[in-house]
């Protein structure tokens, strides 16, 4: 958790420092964009065992290049009669997006982007009341509570479009190709899911997220 906070704060600091220097770019509407991840709401509708939140900050620190910080929390608690399993923790992503829309295609502040992310998560794995029944009778066991750490890399692509009826409000989606770096190898029990990354059964996976965001403009 403290590692998460440190990553988040230092990324934020980098963005603010660079922002101070980039005031006189000719890109329109400087500002920090604060977004809310809408995916947890969708995921909850289809998988009530997954509860989460997510947010993001991004800033155009050079023309067409955005520094991005994302973060969130996930609690996964599947209901099963023969065991009790829970993964919960925080995650953060740091990276940059590059706008590929050429100026003549560009409609004011809309972007179509590709980007990279580094992701990390600090999470807890809790396993109780495992019941294994067979010829020899019932076995009831559990595993120790463990605090684990996972890392992955992402290649992203997506759009961020300003609502024509609400200035400074953006919506969009991000497609993500994720590659797991670490967090799966655990002596005791391999974690089933890593917050921010997803199910660990695959070391390479896709994800998609949606957001709504507000860009807080800087005063010039």
């Amino acid at each position: 958790m403290r590692i998460m906070l440190r990553y988040f704060l230092s990324s934020l600091l980098i963005i603010i420092v660079i922002a101070g220097r980039a005031q006189d770019q000719n890109s329109t509407n400087q500002g920090i964009r604060f977004g809310i991840d809408l995916s947890p709401v969708v995921i909850l509708a289809f998988d009530p065992e997954r509860v989460g939140i997510g947010a993001s900050l991004d800033y155009e620190f050079k023309p067409n290049i955005f520094a991005v910080v994302e973060g969130g929390w996930l609690d996964y608690h599947p209901d099963h009669q023969s065991y009790s399993y829970q993964i919960s923790g925080f995650y953060t992503l740091v990276g940059a997006d590059y706008n590929v829309l050429k100026n003549d295609n560009r409609v004011k502040n809309d972007i179509l982007f590709v980007g990279l992310r580094y992701g990390a998560s600090s999470f807890n794995q809790k396993v109780d009341n495992i019941t294994i029944s067979n010829y020899w009778g019932n076995y009831i066991g559990n595993f120790e509570n463990e605090q684990l750490f996972g890392q992955w890399a992402e290649i992203t692509g997506g759009i961020k479009a300003e609502l024509y009826f609400a200035k400074n409000v953006f919506v969009g989606w991000t497609l993500r190709a994720k590659i797991l770096i670490s967090g799966k190898d655990n002596e005791v029990l391999e974690p089933y899911i890593i917050p921010g990354y997803g199910k660990t059964e695959k070391n390479f996976r896709f994800g998609i997220s949606w957001f709504i965001a507000y860009r807080i403009p800087f005063k010039k």
Binding site: V42, F46, L101, N105, R106, V107, D110, L112, I159, A161, Y164, V171, G172, W173, L175, I208, W210
Partner: peptide, 21 residues
């Protein structure tokens, strides 16, 4: 261009519904 973006936006908004089925 904006129309394409909005079409893409709407398509991806419906994607989870398609996927979950």
């Amino acid at each position: 261009m904006k129309e394409i973006i909005y079409k893409l936006l709407i398509f991806f908004l419906f994607l989870p519904i398609i996927l979950s089925s």
